[in-house]
Design a protein around this nucleic acid. Sequence first.
RNA 1: GGCCCCAUCGUCUAGUCAGGCCUAGGACACCGGCCUUUCACGCCGGCGACACGGGUUCGAAUCCCGUUGGGGCUACCA
Length: 545
Amino acid sequence: MTLFASGTGRSSTGSLSPAGSSRQFFVWRAPNTAPRADAPLSEERSPMSDEVRVRFAPSPTGELHVGGARTALYNWLFAKNKGGKFILRVEDTDEKRSTDENLETILRSMKWLGLDWDEGPVLQSDRLDLYNDYVSLLMSSGNAYYCFAAQEDIEEQRKEALEADENWVYRGADRDLSADEVREKLDSEEQRTVRFKVPDEGTVTVKDLVQGDVAFECEHIEDFVLQRSDEKPTYHLSNVVDDIEMGITHVLRGADHLSNTPKQVLVYEALKAKLPEFAHLPLILGEDGKRLSKRHGATSVEHFRDKGYLPGAVINYLALLGWNPGDDREVFTAVELGNEFTLERVNQANPKFDLEKLSWLNGEYIKEVPAGELRPAVREALQVRGCWDEELDMERRDFFFALIELWQSRARTINELADNIAPFLTEAFAYEPDGLKEHVHGQDLLGLVEAFREALLQVDPWGQEELEATLREVAGGMEREAGDLIHATRIALVGKKSSPGIFEVLDLMGRDKSRSRLDRMIRYLRKLENAKTKRLEQIAQAASR
RNA sequence: GGCCCCAUCGUCUAGUCAGGCCUAGGACACCGGCCUUUCACGCCGGCGACACGGGUUCGAAUCCCGUUGGGGCUACCA
């Protein structure tokens, strides 16, 4: 086993072995010593030593939302671009907020998006012993200490300082307790945490591939908790330990972690571990420029799937939120994105999430994708609407394909597509009120529609050209505009005032169904007539009284 | 409050690192036209931005400072 992975300097100890086994701590070279002075020569180096290893580390405290999905995507793209590995790690050390259900949803969302991982999912809750070993390491090297201060007391002090507008960070009073004092307090079973001993002065500079060099003064960094009183590690510890243990070379994450990074850098340094490269991604904001939250409605990946968005479109849109290829292209497959993605072209400013543009892009995908590929998603949407028939996958398969093709250029989501297709599959559709008002009411259509219904019997062969000729003939024969009949027929056939070309619709719907729907319209028109007559009678009666 | 980040059309962005090629380019949205007796697609056109103020320079969207605005962090959450 190579202890020094040179190149990236990452460790490859046996630390992934089961907890409690003969784990050995990796001993790192001090940062400034010549990296390869005594290291194996290149031919002895592990062939994997230059390999890029990135991870997405969600916390299962909620669904996968667009921000998390974008972080996962950028990691995935970076790995693809560098020929590296994309690892999935689950940061579930906060057992109060983490749920299995959330984890399942996150995994499902990632699979749906096509963000496949090479390793994992690794659950931090399975590796608690590992973090505790690192706590011991940090304690014995004097970089961490038991803190017996009560949480409420610290909060009290913090609050007071804030009210007094003072710059205040917590510096543990128990930092320099003697071994005896510590033992005594430990024995008396007081609650304790383990905190990191932050240097009183000095500067930590985070070298960030997206944000540039960012300097933080130690005097602004408090003695943060590494291990909670329940002996569970905090994020600052488990995150760093795992990044070291898993040989993570590049940490790509949301910019909300930038301010936490100096703390983690301190831990790396205390551990004499090689730092990964950092890249903090700008945060996706809601359309109002505020942080994405429940107030912005559903922003989870699941939601977009349910609304009829295609994974490719979501990936494409998210990739463009904060990154661009440097030219005017906007439509990319995931593979193309992987080929082009570089951190140099990631923006620093926070973008706002724009549903309009996602919808446009989704529409582009729906338009371009072959009808066959849309089939499963459309079927699912039709099933939800209760108008799916297994025949559409069997003997009426061609009909179903034709329906999809007919509506493809008109829908921005699969749900819209299904809404449009539904009237072809079920009689349970209503006439759109606007359509009735504009094209049916007060149009004196009864005779016209009846004539057209009868004329349909003679159309032979049943085809668009013949249908158009027939319709125009009927309208012309009754000295009516063809448009009057077209509009009425459209409402009769699909219930809406807009649809694909009416002759395409008639053609696809077939003679019988077209005639029966015209029948329904005729019945409706008769009812209108009757109502009108009745009302006229009432008016006449009232007048003669 | 303190610390950190950011700032080009309503939105996503190109241009900023290496100042003149920018009377600032593209896309979404919006508006108009063409196509079509519908709607969409498609095509053509229009509207629309360098946050503000100082510097530096022959010259600034680009460099520097300040202001303003937005975001993040400031937990025994991640």
